Simulated scan of single mutants.
Amino acid sequence: MSNQAEMLVQPVKTAGRAGPSRKFGFTWRDKLNDFVIGAMLPVVVLALWQAGADFGLISAQFLPSPLVIAKAFEELLLSGELLGHLGISLGRAALGFGIGGGLGLLFGVLVGFSRKAEDMLDPTMQMLRMIPHLAIAPLIILWFGFGEWSKVLIIAKGAFFPLYVNTFMGIRSVDNKLFDVARVLEFSRSKQIRQLVVPAALPSILLGLRLSLALSWVGLVVAELIGSQAGVGFLINFAKQTSATEVIFVGVVIFAIVGKLVDSLVRWLEHRLLRWRDSYEG
Rank of each mutant, 00 (worst) to 15 (best):
F62C: 06
F62W: 09
F62G: 11
L63V: 04
L63P: 03
L63F: 08
S65L: 04
P66H: 07
P66Q: 08
L67N: 08
V68A: 12
V68H: 10
A70R: 11
A70H: 07
K71Y: 09
A72P: 08
F73G: 13
F73D: 12
E74N: 08
E74V: 10
E74D: 09
L76R: 04
L76S: 00
L78F: 04
L78I: 05
S79L: 00
G80I: 01
E81M: 00
L82M: 05
L83Y: 02
H85W: 01
H85A: 05
L86G: 10
L86M: 15
L86N: 11
I88F: 15
I88S: 14
S89M: 04
S89F: 02
L90T: 04
G91T: 13
G91K: 15
R92K: 10
R92S: 00
A93Q: 09
A93Y: 00
A93T: 10
A93G: 00
A93E: 01
A94P: 02
L95W: 06
L95P: 02
G96N: 00
F97W: 15
G101R: 06
G102P: 12
L106I: 12
L110Q: 03
L110R: 01
V111H: 02
G112T: 12
F113I: 10
F113T: 13
F113W: 10
S114Y: 02
S114R: 04
K116E: 15
E118I: 03
E118M: 03
D119P: 00
L121T: 10
D122N: 13
P123M: 02
M127K: 08
R129E: 01
R129S: 02
I131T: 15
I131C: 11
H133P: 08
H133D: 12
H133G: 09
L134E: 14
A135P: 11
I136V: 15
I140F: 04
I140C: 03
I141A: 02
I141H: 01
W143R: 08
W143N: 09
W143A: 09
W143I: 14
F144G: 00
F146A: 10
F146Q: 07
F146P: 07
E148P: 01
W149A: 11
W149I: 14
S150W: 15
S150N: 14
V152L: 13
V152A: 06
L153H: 02
L153I: 13
L153F: 05
L153T: 06
K157E: 09
A159Y: 04
A159G: 14
A159E: 09
F160V: 06
F160S: 06
P162I: 11
L163G: 07
V165I: 14
N166A: 04
G170R: 04
G170Q: 06
R172C: 03
R172L: 01
S173Q: 11
V174T: 06
D175G: 07
N176V: 05
N176A: 06
F179S: 04
D180P: 03
V181N: 07
A182L: 00
R183G: 15
E186H: 14
E186V: 13
F187V: 14
S190P: 08
K191H: 11
K191F: 13
I193K: 06
R194T: 14
Q195M: 13
V198Y: 03
V198D: 01
P199F: 01
P199W: 00
P199R: 02
P199N: 01
A200M: 05
A201I: 07
L202R: 08
L202M: 14
P203C: 04
S204K: 05
I205R: 03
L207V: 15
